[in-house]
């Protein structure tokens, strides 16, 4: 093949003959691609963009168009008349407003809880544990990700039942189980998404050179100022990257709240019920715009911190 390539430059017509004999088409395609970087880019970018840019974005677009349509209350069919009724209902109804703020609050709280728990763990893993222990800890944090989400949520349901483990252990500290409700929902969601916060922070801290910490100490800074002025600014993009997952995953959840949340509803439940039981897709689509708008604003803000490079 190499000698053939040398011949390429010198005698083009010989190449053509040789090419036909030895699988010429791939080589000719390769030559064209090599000479035209834009074509190569198009070849690489085309299929993923067809899938995500056309099919996925198209599906999202089609969904949000239906948010401006209505539903025939008798037949349940979608009525293609443009109006803002769905959004008006959302805006004017106290119930939906309450659910929206509750969902937002839960997602924010879960994110904060995860940051508070993940930061010391990640700092210990990256900067104190020996390399061997570091590897073990990474595995220890990753393993729960492979256990079923539902089973973990259900385990918390069992643990927080009356007379369950939380009651048992909490008894020593004078704590009762919070029972099924919003507190249980926040605890369970924070538990489920914790690895998504630990891992990016750990990776961010690992990239922070040890010499920076030493320099800070040599210049006389104590642990506190070193953390505040060197560690926190460096891990900030990683925290934002992790929060995209904890926040978004909590925002769209409707299953955990059903398992441990008692009678409470989140936005996901409203969407689910309107797609399923009520069969009102236009209204469901209107409700779904709330988390989408929140996430788009969040992503736009995250992009400015450079966090998306770390996702």
């Amino acid at each position: 093949m190499n000698s053939a390539a040398e011949g390429t430059a010198a005698r083009p017509h010989l190449l053509a003959r040789f090419g036909r004999a030895a699988g010429g088409l791939p080589r000719r395609v390769s030559t064209v691609l090599h000479r035209h970087p834009r074509l190569r880019l198009g070849f690489l970018l085309g299929p993923p963009m067809l899938w995500l840019g056309v099919a996925y974005l198209g599906a999202l677009g089609a969904l949000f168009i239906t948010a401006f349509w209505g539903q025939n209350p008798f037949t349940g069919d979608v009525v293609r008349e443009w109006n803002l009724d769905n959004f008006r209902t959302l805006w004017e109804s106290e119930v939906y407003r309450k659910i929206a703020f509750r969902t937002l609050g839960i997602a924010a709280l879960v994110t904060v809880v995860d940051i508070v728990i993940a930061f010391p763990v990640a700092l210990y893993m990256a900067k104190i544990a020996s390399p061997r222990l570091q590897r073990i800890l990474v595995i220890a944090v990753l393993t729960p990700l492979w256990a079923s989400y539902l089973v973990k949520a259900y385990a918390w349901r069992i643990m927080m039942s009356e007379g369950g483990i939380v009651d048992d252990l909490g008894g020593f500290l004078g704590l009762d189980t919070p029972g099924y409700g919003l507190a249980a929902t926040v605890i369970t969601l924070a538990y489920l998404w914790l690895p998504f916060m630990i891992l990016p922070i750990y990776a961010g801290l690992e990239r922070l050179p040890d010499s920076m910490l030493e320099a800070s100490m040599d210049l006389g800074a104590k642990t506190g100022p070193t953390l505040r002025r060197i560690v926190l600014p460096t891990v900030f993009p990683a925290v934002v990257a992790g929060s995209i997952f904890t926040f978004s995953l909590s925002l769209g959840d409707y299953i955990t709240v059903r398992i441990v949340g008692g009678a409470n509803q989140m936005l996901g439940n409203v969407v689910y019920d309107n797609v399923g039981a009520a069969n009102n897709l236009p209204f469901a689509a209107a409700v779904a715009t709330i988390p989408v708008v929140i996430m788009l604003v969040y992503l736009a803000a995250a992009r400015r911190t450079g966090a998306l490079e770390n996702v």
Binding site: M49, G53, Y56, A59, L63, L249, Y254
Partner: peptide, 30 residues
Amino acid sequence: RDTVSLLIILPIALPGIVTGIALNNAFRTV
């Protein structure tokens, strides 16, 4: 280029229920 990288993250950054009903609607009606 930035938009493309955002587009790739989007299906996992948007809540699953949104991706779910959008695809459900597209598969059946479109």
